[in-house]
């Protein structure tokens, strides 16, 4: 099972590291499998026109990533 719990924990640590480095981050890039899990979970929100967001970041589907890895930008 791909775990959103793990991805979000990794991303959260990266957000804090970015803050310490005084770097502004707005986007979370995730693997297609994770993106699909997020979109499925947020289906009702998306129908209402809300964007796909996690930890206050826009989520982007990135085919170059795999597994429970996330990248910030």
């Amino acid at each position: 099972m791909q775990s959103l719990g793990v991805v979000i924990d990794e991303a959260c640590a990266a957000v804090f590291a970015a803050r310490d480095a005084q770097r502004r981050v707005t986007t979370l890039r995730v693997s297609p499998a994770i993106y699909e899990a997020i979109v499925q979970g947020k289906a009702r929100e998306l129908e209402r026109g809300n964007p796909v967001m996690v930890l206050g970041l826009d989520v982007v589907n990135d085919a170059s990533l795999s597994g429970e890895v996330a990248a910030l930008e």
Binding site: S3, G5, V6, D9, C12, V15, F16, M53, V54
Partner: peptide
């Protein structure tokens, strides 16, 4: 339905450790 934010880091870490 939740919208976690970085301030929820304790919750996020606890879930990870359990998983």
């Amino acid at each position: 339905n939740e919208h976690l934010v970085p301030a929820d880091v304790g919750i996020i870490r606890m879930r990870r450790l359990l998983i």
